[in-house]
Nucleic acid binder design. Structure first.
Lengths: 192, 192
DNA sequence: CGGGAAAAAGGACATTTGTCCGAAGCATCG
DNA sequence: CGATGCTTCGGACAAATGTCCTTTTTCCCG
């Protein structure tokens, strides 16, 4: 649920002050701050140094669907670099957030000149695809309660870290339905 | 719905007979043949030369959820290369299928030695992530009928190419529900 | 052409989830 | 302390989807 990428974090931490002779900028965001808007040209790739952010997609009708929660080492904005497109989702800080920020050209250069970085990006993308494949499948084939139990299994304290509306948007259900399922699970002592 | 990757197809077609001095094997599969099993060590990366295949994930309860339909230029097996894992899904030919096949070591070598190939793989992975993000979101937030209309918009003849059980598994619904929705859409002259 | 097996479609009812809205809890401020 | 507004929770009903099983259609082969 809250994803991390230790390898990339380690790489960035180690290389942060001088990557190929350049300086990697660090930015801070307060909770609720928008790091990346939906539908704008993406100028920077961000890598989470610490904190948690949510990545979500807004539909025309205003519904938001949360794609992932980014924890340490997770990267975003890279997808758009490869097709030179506008951001297809938004990213918003949930906690105090510190990110490394790479310009488009620095990212490009690193990708071609640093073999290790290149491989980390490939691995990161592959992990995202795999994560999404499992998530969508499980999600689709199981009722809300089962999904909640799975989340609890992966991340026991998720209800303390993620707000209820966010959990609902992550599961793609209404808050009403989420409440109903939570209540039922509690009555059966399966959570809390 | 049926995805293609023209750039990669073009690259493979052009380079097929001698990629860095090596020979790229070509394989053929009849409809229903299994190209890649779920849960086995992945030894080869495949790239579709022609035909259509389905990529699906089998849950413990036997339900299968179709991730994508691979058309020309689509690659599979690459995800598993980066983390050295077992295949997390299966791939099965739907039509006569011709694929290029790269061994693990050839894939690795190409990735590090051929800048263009490297970039094509990156782009391909990014496209997969983006595709999955939109699909899951739309899927989750809309009823079956809306999803069917969307498929029809993207691929008007999908019902002639993809079998009903496959469409149902792609949408993650039962055949009963699919029938119901199709009937309703037909009565309202929205499809067919 | 006819019989029978297999595949596809659909009826009836159960379950899950959504919608709408009112009730209950909780903070703020005079 | 009590009024006010905000947020959260949950009841009642509607809609969507699943389950189970019967009916209908298709197709094959004699």
């Amino acid at each position: 649920m809250i994803r991390i990428n230790e390898e990339l974090l380690e790489f960035m931490n180690g290389a942060a002050l001088s990557l190929q002779g350049r300086f990697v900028a660090e930015r801070r965001f307060a909770p609720r701050a928008v790091v990346l808007e939906q539908g704008v040209r993406v100028e920077f790739v961000h890598i989470v140094k610490s904190g948690i952010a949510k990545c979500y997609l807004m539909e025309e009708n205003g519904a938001e669907f949360i794609q992932e929660f980014f924890g340490a080492g997770e990267i975003f904005g890279e997808i758009e670099m490869f097709h030179d497109e506008e951001s297809f989702g938004a990213v918003e800080a949930l906690t105090d957030l510190v990110v490394y920020r790479l310009s488009r050209s620095d990212f490009e250069r690193l990708l071609t000149e640093n073999q290790k970085f290149n491989r980390l990006i490939l691995k990161g993308l592959a992990a995202k695809v795999k994560y999404k494949a499992f998530r969508h499948s499980f999600h689709q084939l199981n009722p809300i309660e089962t999904n909640l139990l799975r989340l609890k299994g992966q991340f026991p304290d998720f209800l303390k870290v993620i707000s209820k509306p966010d959990v609902a948007n992550y599961l793609g259900v209404t808050e009403r339905s989420l409440n109903r399922s939570l209540k039922s699970l509690k009555e059966r002592k399966l959570i809390e």
